[in-house]
Design a protein around this nucleic acid. Structure first.
Lengths: 191, 191
DNA sequence: GACAACATGTAATAGGTTACATGATTTA
DNA sequence: TAAATCATGTAACCTATTACATGTTGTC
């Protein structure tokens, strides 16, 4: 079984009512480094959850703003969430173009390899910063994290930093090596 | 742009001819920790690549074995592969039920949290071992890795070990904390 | 006698993404 | 006046998974 957008929506709603728009923001701010979801999947998910009686919807009109549909978890929804969380195996998959490109780096011009390293490095740094900012924000607002959430975030930070440190230490050597290869054989006709 | 099965198949074929069955094994042995693909995607991919003239197919009958279709990269296929590798941004996404479950650990019974930690730990250890075995196998056969591949594998190992070490060090405390929570409130009626 | 490895393929289904459509208000 | 934020939704598409169908040989 895989955790789908519907289940994650139920999860977000345990923290209180929210609109589809709100939930999207939660996904971006809280789940983004291990789960992505777009409006195109969130809105249909909420519609379906409402049809199944797992959430209820209340329409709210606001001055100078579009109407919003605010969803709240029902008891059935809470039960379904718990049952799903119980039954879901803790998988952890990576889909990485970065690793794949490294695997075929010898087919690429040296400059490209250097760029890949740099781009990955700035991506990782951005992710790390985002998580640190989230922690700072939560600290300031004093809305404490649950122990599991603290563990989750610290594990992610620890892992990401190790990933970054390795690239920072060994990336430049790889780029140089690629440079040496490229200039000495014919696979790339640059210059 | 995303690296799809078709492109990865072209990549595998740069190392020489292979059947769909061979390619599946390569995926399992080499890509498994950052990319998964099943027969249901590999066979159609090869058919399509052949239609596009990016690979050629030769049917080979074997004694006491089913026939195999052996595919080889064409010049057009090699060019297409290089162009795709040039144009593909080095993304790196994680889809993790494990992180998601941690995020909602406070809704789960303590035992379950402990199991999640243990299961993740043995998964990571298995992955690490597989990579180490692959390295040992390659070392024995003396078919050296390209520099990019060595970097890729070492980065993966380094990252996975950091991930594992954090869980090993802090996981037990989380399980204990969950235990304390569960026994003092009503969210779980076990025992 | 059952299961794993060898070998290929299809069809139904799942689970998303992207782009589009709509439209007000605030900010630069 | 251009762009961002707020706000919802649909339709076309993509990509891959799962399960099924088929059959032999070798191993436990």
């Amino acid at each position: 079984m895989t955790l789908d957008v519907k289940t994650l929506c139920l999860g977000v709603l345990t923290q209180g009512e929210a609109s589809g728009y709100d939930i999207k923001k939660q996904f971006e701010q809280v789940f983004s480094y291990f789960y992505v979801a777009s409006f195109g999947s969130i809105y249909p998910a909420l519609t379906q959850l409402a049809r199944e009686g797992l959430v209820v919807c209340r329409e709210e009109s606001q001055p100078n703003r579009p109407d919003r549909k605010v969803y709240a978890l029902t008891e059935a929804g809470r039960e379904r969430l718990l049952a799903t969380l119980q039954a879901t195996p803790p998988r952890h998959r990576i889909r990485s173009e970065f690793y794949a490109l490294l695997h075929f780096a010898h087919l690429l011009p040296a400059r490209r390899v250097g760029e890949l390293i740099d781009e990955r490095l700035s991506d990782v740094n951005r992710t790390i910063e985002e998580i640190e900012n989230m922690l700072a924000r939560l600290g300031a607002e004093d809305c404490g994290l649950e122990p599991g959430q603290r563990f989750e975030v610290e594990l992610a930070l620890h892992t990401l930093r190790a990933h970054r440190d390795f690239i920072q230490k060994n990336g430049p050597a790889l780029a140089r090596e690629a440079q040496a290869n490229t200039s000495s054989d014919l696979q790339y006709s640059g210059t």
